[in-house]
Computed example of a mutant assay.
Amino acid sequence: MNFESYDLTLNRSNYVRCELGWELPLLFSQKLDDYDLWMVWAGSGTMQLHDGNIELHPGMCIWMRPGGLYLSQQDNTNRLGVSAQHFDLINPSTGKRPRDKDLPPQVIHMPDIPAITGTMRTIARLNTVGQQARNKTSKQALASAQLLMRGLLMEVCYQAHVPKLHLSPTDHMHRSIITQLAADMTASPQDIDSIESLATDAGYSPAHFSRVFKHIMGISPQRHLMESRIHRARHLLIETDWSITRIAQVMGYNDVYFFSRQFKQITGQTPSSVR
């Protein structure tokens, strides 16, 4: 699909962990008047489409479109984490949306959950800033969000045409567990006590967990947790007036100097320079 032929408009953005009892009712489908790129980053559930039911798990991406059917329920013992980007694509020459046959399939599996999740969180944040204010900064935020969204849609289209791996039930189980844990680490790194406890809770020995995690994610769990903590710390430095010491402690660092060294290693900046 050639996105250059279409004007992109970002509408609502959302990034949430669904509440107990949450469901997506028929009214949602009936009122859907734009596209909604809907991706699961945590939890499990089911969704009913016109052509059947699908299981929801981390990495599932649904390109919802007007006229479709999207009824969803979650497993309340494993609540869904979802990012939703409402948007529109209009050809300025014709004033029309793309034909359905020119769009990718409605359901696409996105393999690199932490990267995609980070992009969608950034789009949601920038779009919120852009929609709520009317000044130069908000216009820049909205323009950045639109550029990121174009890149994300191109990645979705690419993944829709990449040959899929034929996994054994055991490999699929490992991939499902690890990708969800990676998403949880990205979303709430401050809640992870240690890689050892995470591995034990998931039913792995620490050594086996590290091997499986790196095989699936391409990065060690220790490195992924460190990067997730540092990226979250960077957001807190920008968005709050908390002291560097307090942010370090919230992210699980007892030594603020060690935190500062890791922060510079990951971001290329010192914590104080971010402010």
Rank of each mutant, 00 (worst) to 15 (best):
Q85V: 05
G59W: 01
N254K: 15
H235M: 13
P105E: 05
M226H: 01
T128V: 04
S272V: 09
L126G: 13
R246F: 14
Y70P: 04
L8G: 00
W63P: 08
W242P: 00
Q262W: 13
N2W: 03
M217C: 15
I192H: 02
H161I: 12
G218I: 01
H50I: 07
V16R: 13
H215A: 09
G95T: 10
K139G: 11
T94W: 07
S243E: 08
A233W: 04
H215E: 08
L49A: 12
A233N: 03
P25Q: 06
G151Q: 08
L37P: 10
D102R: 15
L8A: 04
D7S: 11
T186G: 13
I90E: 02
G252V: 06
M60F: 00
G118P: 01
L69V: 11
I219Q: 08
N76A: 11
T200N: 04
L236Q: 13
D255Y: 05
G218K: 01
V212K: 11
V212F: 04
H224D: 06
A187Q: 13
P169C: 01
M39Y: 12
I266G: 04
R234G: 03
L237P: 05
K136A: 09
M110A: 11
Q269H: 03
I177M: 07
G95P: 09
A248Q: 00
M185E: 12
N53R: 13
G268L: 06
Y15L: 14
I238L: 10
H172V: 00
T245Q: 07
S72E: 01
T267H: 15
D241S: 15
S176W: 01
V16S: 14
H166T: 02
H224I: 06
E155L: 09
M185N: 11
T200D: 07
I238F: 07
M110G: 08
P105H: 02
P206A: 11
V40D: 13
E19A: 06
G45D: 04
E196W: 02
R134A: 13
C61A: 09
T245K: 10
D201N: 11
N11M: 02
A160L: 10
L225E: 05
S72A: 11
N11W: 02
P111R: 10
K96N: 09
Q262L: 14
H50D: 07
D184Q: 14
Q48A: 14
Y204S: 02
R261H: 14
S83M: 09
K136D: 07
R79S: 10
E19N: 08
R232G: 07
P66E: 00
S168C: 02
L126Q: 15
H174S: 12
R223P: 01
N76G: 09
T170H: 15
K214V: 09
R150S: 04
A199K: 08
M47L: 09
I108F: 10
Y158V: 05
L37H: 07
S5K: 13
S188K: 15
T119M: 04
L20D: 12
A183C: 03
R121P: 08
K164L: 05
L153E: 13
Q159M: 08
R79F: 08
S273H: 00
S138I: 01
D171C: 00
R79G: 05
L181V: 01
N127Q: 05
P92R: 14
A141L: 03
N91R: 02
H109Q: 15
N2E: 12
T245V: 10
S188P: 11
L152P: 08
